[in-house]
């Protein structure tokens, strides 16, 4: 564990708490892509199957439980309590275009051709693009509630912090994970446009609005 990874995980944790907080305070999941949230459940469940056979640490164990539990809770809220505030008509990204290629790539790029390793690879690739339905929804509506942008910013910071973490690990432990690094760079790259608007508008106290 190093500071970059710990702060990254903290940002990830914070992003989820911000999202749940947004839903409870505004009594709405408006502006949130159900598809992205469902993809995150798939990501966590396929990646953390190792809960059953690999012990890493108490920290790792509880974080995994939290990510699986909280992502399922978010889906549950979106399908029950806040269902009327959800608009499937604007959440139209075709997730087949993500699931298909991620499956193929996971079958090609994995550390061992075994079910759990392939699922692990799949989860890494899927996480890198899982935010796309959300960014697509944002693009379609052209604006977002400030709290939703804080959620996205925290997620982006989490991804960004994993990059110095890998650099640090390479120099201190000699650990290199080509699959995680490649997917991680792609994932971080997807946030660049968002961050530009977030920094130039939201952090200056303006509303998040995309230029027409």
């Amino acid at each position: 564990m190093n500071l970059f990874r710990f702060l990254g995980d903290t940002a990830h944790l914070a992003s989820i708490l911000v999202l749940i907080h947004k839903m409870h305070t505004t009594k709405s999941c408006r502006g949130i892509s159900f598809k992205t949230q469902a993809l995150y459940v798939a990501v966590f469940v396929t990646r953390y199957l190792d809960l059953f056979y690999r012990w890493v640490s108490l920290y790792n164990f509880f974080m995994k439980l939290f990510f699986i539990g909280s992502s399922c809770y978010i889906l549950f809220l979106m399908k029950t309590k806040f269902r009327p505030t959800q608009d499937p008509a604007i959440d139209t990204f075709r997730i087949e275009y993500l699931l298909g290629p991620c499956t193929v790539i996971a079958l090609i790029f994995n550390y061992k051709f075994s079910p759990t390793e392939i699922l692990w690879s799949f989860s890494i690739f899927l996480e890198s693009v899982a935010i796309l339905p959300q960014l697509f929804l944002l693009q379609r509506t052209g604006e977002a509630e400030t709290i939703t942008t804080h959620y996205l910013a925290a997620l982006g910071i989490y991804r960004a912090l994993y990059i110095p973490n890998w650099i640090y690990r390479y120099f201190t432990e000699g650990v290199v994970d080509p699959i995680a690094i490649t997917a991680g760079l792609v994932q971080t790259g997807l946030y660049i446009d968002f961050f530009y608007v977030y920094v130039t508008k939201v952090l200056q106290g303006q509303k998040f609005e995309l230029p027409a």
Binding site: H12, D50, R54, S57, N60, K64, V175, A180
Partner: peptide, 10 residues
């Protein structure tokens, strides 16, 4: 590099 990966990240 595969075996040097520790799978301890979230």
């Amino acid at each position: 590099a595969a075996d040097r990966h520790t799978k301890d990240e979230l």
